[in-house]
Amino acid sequence: MDPFVVLVLCLSCLLLLSIWRQSSGRGKLPPGPTPLPVIGNILQIDIKDVSKSLTNLSKIYGPVFTLYFGLERMVVLHGYEVVKEALIDLGEEFSGRGHFPLAERANRGFGIVFSNGKRWKEIRRFSLMTLRNFGMGKRSIEDRVQEEARCLVEELRKTKASPCDPTFILGCAPCNVICSIIFQKRFDYKDQQFLNLMEKLNENIRIVSTPWIQICNNFPTIIDYFPGTHNKLLKNLAFMESDILEKVKEHQESMDINNPRDFIDCFLIKMEKEKQNQQSEFTIENLVITAADLLGAGTETTSTTLRYALLLLLKHPEVTAKVQEEIERVIGRNRSPCMQDRGHMPYTDAVVHEVQRYIDLIPTSLPHAVTCDVKFRNYLIPKGTTILTSLTSVLHDNKEFPNPEMFDPRHFLDEGGNFKKSNYFMPFSAGKRICVGEGLARMELFLFLTFILQNFNLKSLIDPKDLDTTPVVNGFASVPPFYQLCFIPV
């Protein structure tokens, strides 16, 4: 058959498939802009700032609406009420993970971030239990974070109060905490193996944040037939998995079943207990991918939040002064901060919360999916439909947070200066898919920041009023603009 005829037939089939998918069930789905064949609503979305586009569309179609990214149908949730109703009140029905062709290629359905069903539930339950087990290797997770915080302070001392970009050092600290939990080992910041790991993690975040990856996920045929950065992403992930597998083999040879040292040991012990169960989800494949998931999810998000926190503290020296006064009063100079201190430091706690609220790190979270046909607000959402959640619409709700575009710790303080919780605080998402490392991340943010401010004054290279804190939105995360500062020993 003539190649031209084959091409026309293929394009015609794709067009018909697109029209059929977009028209099927439209009477039951939430409203939304009319999609174009094949490309859907992509032309109506700013790929570099999806969150802003969703906010604009919500003003037209309401808090629940339908979009098509290519052939992929998505239902968008915008605003606290619908997000709570879906992710919390109907948590089980909305607990699936959205379709990610690239991740599915890399992870093969294993791990904790992109798995679904029984596998996801069992691996998540085990990971939560293990991360909360403060007795691994007779050292609590808090001990590990405190140790890394001391190392971080010593690295900052080496800058000798000269101007520096904190990106690298602030990236090393949370990565080392995860390494300590998974591998029972922290690395020197100049260790070549550690630097290679950091390089792969950072490069992957840069790649994932590009519009090209959005295109690959919406048109998965590209993955096999086109060159691009997605190939580098898959190569980096394969490198990390190979490295983790080597460490798993080392653990198998040296493990003491009665004295687990780290996450890998705990997983291997669980595998041993379930070795007679042919349906067990505790396999080497799941261990390797879960460890890679924890490394990827637990490094860049925390380091970016820390980097943004220091920029905001530079911009608002009056806030920094209040935090340091609270540190001096509650902790002093002669001991290290600990998590028990947080309950006695409402202002510092409010500042950490406000940093996370203000920066809105992951504006749309990772997409969910419905696990069955769901009736939601008089609409029928078919099983498997991807759910896109606007966390921006919750964290920047102007009824809950007056002047949401302003950095103001009073958003989390009552009139008496006591810490005030808010149900709208969802930087880790909400419901059954809430970030498994939430507790660890909150511990790291509090301890790293208090250790830094206990030991250093922060000095800006320019007038604080002239510092730009506008986030650089890159399609996946909101990151701070480049800046330098000086760490002046107190």
Rank of each mutant, 00 (worst) to 15 (best):
H411K: 06
T304A: 12
Q184D: 15
E92N: 11
E300P: 12
G40S: 02
E246M: 09
L14W: 15
P163H: 07
R21P: 09
S18N: 11
R329T: 10
T305Q: 02
G117M: 04
V436I: 15
V479T: 14
P227Q: 08
P101V: 09
D2G: 14
N116V: 06
V473L: 10
S140Q: 07
S393W: 00
L445K: 02
T130Y: 15
F4A: 12
A430N: 06
L156C: 08
V352D: 00
G62C: 01
L388H: 01
G439P: 14
I434R: 08
E272V: 12
N286D: 04
I222Q: 04
K247Q: 12
N259L: 07
L29D: 07
Y61H: 09
L447G: 05
N277T: 12
D143R: 08
L9R: 06
S429P: 03
C338N: 05
L361T: 06
Y424H: 14
Y424D: 02
T364M: 14
T304E: 10
D265N: 00
I47E: 06
E400I: 06
S18T: 14
V83F: 05
V82P: 10
D373L: 02
I284E: 08
P471G: 08
K275L: 08
I452G: 03
I60S: 15
N277M: 12
E318H: 10
H230L: 06
Y225W: 10
N231D: 09
R157M: 12
T305S: 11
F451H: 15
V319P: 03
K48Y: 15
F183V: 04
N107H: 09
I462F: 11
T392L: 02
R139D: 14
I362M: 13
I39Q: 03
F4D: 03
L268S: 03
K28N: 15
V76A: 05
T302I: 12
E325C: 13
C266L: 13
D414A: 07
E318R: 10
L310G: 03
T130M: 13
I434Y: 11
E142G: 07
E142H: 07
I205W: 14
I60M: 10
E246T: 13
R21Y: 10
D349E: 12
R124V: 00
F187G: 05
G298L: 02
K465Y: 11
S390Y: 03
N457T: 14
L453V: 08
A297L: 06
R410G: 09
M426E: 01
N41M: 00
R119E: 06
L9P: 04
D466M: 13
L314P: 00
F168V: 13
D165N: 08
E241D: 07
L36Q: 06
S23W: 14
F487M: 05
F282V: 03
T302L: 07
T450A: 11
E142W: 03
Q454H: 07
V145F: 03
K399H: 13
E122Y: 06
L57D: 01
K421T: 13
Q146R: 13
G437D: 03
A430K: 05
K383G: 07
R150K: 15
G343L: 14
T392W: 04
S180A: 11
F65I: 06
V374H: 01
